[in-house]
Design a protein around this nucleic acid. Structure first.
Lengths: 115, 115
DNA sequence: CATGGATACAACCATATGGTTGTATCCGAG
DNA sequence: CTCGGATACAACCATATGGTTGTATCCATG
């Protein structure tokens, strides 16, 4: 499934990007778009380049973007993308819930049969 | 972050498990727990063993489980885990939204400054 | 316009992932 | 108890990921 937006973005990439604690933390920290990659890297144990790579993954997923600010490039969470990602999860969730709902009685029945 | 449940489950694993279209499809198909791995595999192009591996990933993430049913082992989506996963996403979303909300005026201000 | 801080990128390594084929085990049906 | 269908697992391969260090580029500042 592909959700259209500024930069078309990929469900696989979004979930994959979120499947790492460091990256989820970066998304949080970048919400106010006040830090460059150096500052971000300061919060973690790993090397600067490693953080750069994580940032690249998030960027590829469309979850963050970088913009020049004076001498630095500031990392900012893409709120639009975040909302879209969220909507995406909602879609799946409702799909799932839909099926779950349609199934509830069957399950309840079978549970009672088991007992 | 670790959410306690029947089998303690890992955010990284959950997101990673969802970062693949085949696996998301399996989660859907396994909601009614009517198919074994062979039947599931029938829906995809890849080999049986490949599907088995995907199932294993989902199982490790706690999103599905297998239970014997006669000669077969039936794959069933773990609804509890699904709801927990969903709750997890909600948690993140509210965290994010919280920050976003607290930030809205600042952003609006800066936007106006830009204009 | 030269310097240096910030960023980018390349090469390298270890491990994980996603796929294959092949073989082994398990267990209900007959 | 044997047979065969369903499942499991091992070995292998290609590629991706997450980390490292080192080098190159970029550009605002002084």
């Amino acid at each position: 499934m592909v959700v259209s937006m500024d930069t078309t973005f990929n469900v696989d990439h979004v979930f994959a990007a979120l499947a790492d604690a460091t990256r989820r933390d970066i998304v949080l920290r970048a919400l106010d778009g006040s830090e460059g990659v150096v500052e971000l890297a300061g919060h973690f144990q790993m090397s600067f380049a490693a953080v750069q790579k994580h940032v690249a993954v998030l960027e590829r997923a469309g979850l963050i973007s970088k913009e020049r600010s004076g001498r630095r490039k500031v990392v900012r969470t893409n709120m639009e993308a975040l909302r879209l990602a969220r909507g995406l999860l909602d879609e799946y969730e409702s799909l799932w819930r839909g099926r779950i709902d349609r199934m509830t009685d069957l399950i309840t029945l079978s549970k009672e049969t088991e007992a």
